[in-house]
């Protein structure tokens, strides 16, 4: 990391300009928990680090109507301390809080987790299931994009040169909605997800699921929005038959690899298990809300 340059701009526009000028080696710094490790290991070439944490909009959580707007560099621990966010989106908060240790939570951000473009990123399936969007700032101004459009391949994003995510927006949601995220790791903590599953449900007054979103992590090159799996839930009360259909549809959506963290076969099976379990939790939450 000897040839790194560092700047800490105070406006999004300055940051975008610096990122563009810095060329392919320029990187935005959110929490740094991925970036610093990658720079140090040599996986990323040394270049310009643009710290986003001095940009006011990049830090903190705002409520906008029923929506929540979360600054790109807001550390995970801030999410866990936000009562209203935790009530509205417990699955998103849980997923974010699963990233690394308490120490990592003091730094790591959802936007960083998203833009690192790992298929195993814990917060991303929950964000995708939540139908979250991001506000992207670039040299040509601002644009909005869905969360699932950001990562295009492991380690690769759709962001243009100079662009970075400034905010993540969780939409306003009706009552009787609930979400959940579960992952499988060998230990109880400190691991990268071998499989992750996020489920987001809305029920009608009778408890019938009217809207469902299921997203699966670490079972493909990017997080998978499993629409058939979600469809298996809509119109049901997440009963056993629906869950069995969900399990099968989730497995059918998987396209994993075998690597040091798990076999493709294992990942596929567990995706079904976790989708089922997460759906049950999300359903219980939706009923209570």
């Amino acid at each position: 990391m000897s040839n790194v340059e560092f700047i800490a701009p105070t406006s999004p526009e300055q940051a975008a300009k610096a990122l563009l000028a810095g060329g392919p080696g320029a990187r935005p710094l959110g929490g740094g928990t991925d970036l610093l490790v990658q720079l140090r290991s040599g996986r990323l070439p040394a270049g310009l680090i643009v710290d986003l944490k001095r940009i006011p909009e990049a830090i903190g959580i705002r409520q906008d109507g029923g929506a929540f707007v979360i600054g790109a560099s807001t550390p995970g621990i801030t999410l866990s301390e936000h009562k209203a966010l935790g009530l509205a989106w417990p699955g998103v908060v849980e997923a974010t809080n699963l990233i690394g240790s308490t120490q990592v939570q003091g730094r790591a951000s959802m936007a960083g987790n998203l833009c690192n473009a790992s298929p195993a990123a814990d917060s991303v399936p929950a964000l995708v299931a939540a139908r979250a969007t991001c506000l992207i700032v670039g040299p040509d101004g601002r644009r909005t994009a869905t969360v699932e459009s950001i990562a295009v391949a492991p380690g690769k994003t759709s962001l243009a040169p100079g662009e970075f995510v400034l905010e993540i927006r969780l939409p306003a949601r009706p009552g009787r909605s609930g979400d959940a995220y579960l992952r499988s790791i060998p230990r109880t903590e400190m691991d990268i997800a071998v499989v992750g599953a996020g489920v987001n449900l809305t029920l009608d007054a009778a408890g019938v699921i009217t809207e469902a979103h299921v997203a699966l992590g670490a079972v493909g090159p990017t997080v998978i929005l499993a629409t058939a799996a979600a469809a298996a839930l809509v119109g049901t009360k997440a009963d056993e038959a629906a869950l069995a259909n969900l399990d099968a549809a989730a497995r059918a959506a998987c396209n994993p690899i075998s690597d040091k963290r798990g076999t493709a076969e294992f990942r596929t099976k567990i995706a079904g298990v976790l989708a089922r379990r997460a759906a049950t939790i999300a359903y219980g939450r939706a009923e209570k809300r």
């Binding site: 800490a8 610093l36 490790v37 944490k53 550390p75 120490q103 730094r107």
Partner: peptide, 14 residues
């Protein structure tokens, strides 16, 4: 905030 100081750049401490 509890952090790992190996994951913080020294220049960020300004």
């Amino acid at each position: 905030r509890l952090v790992c100081s190996c994951l913080v750049l020294a220049v960020e401490a300004e």
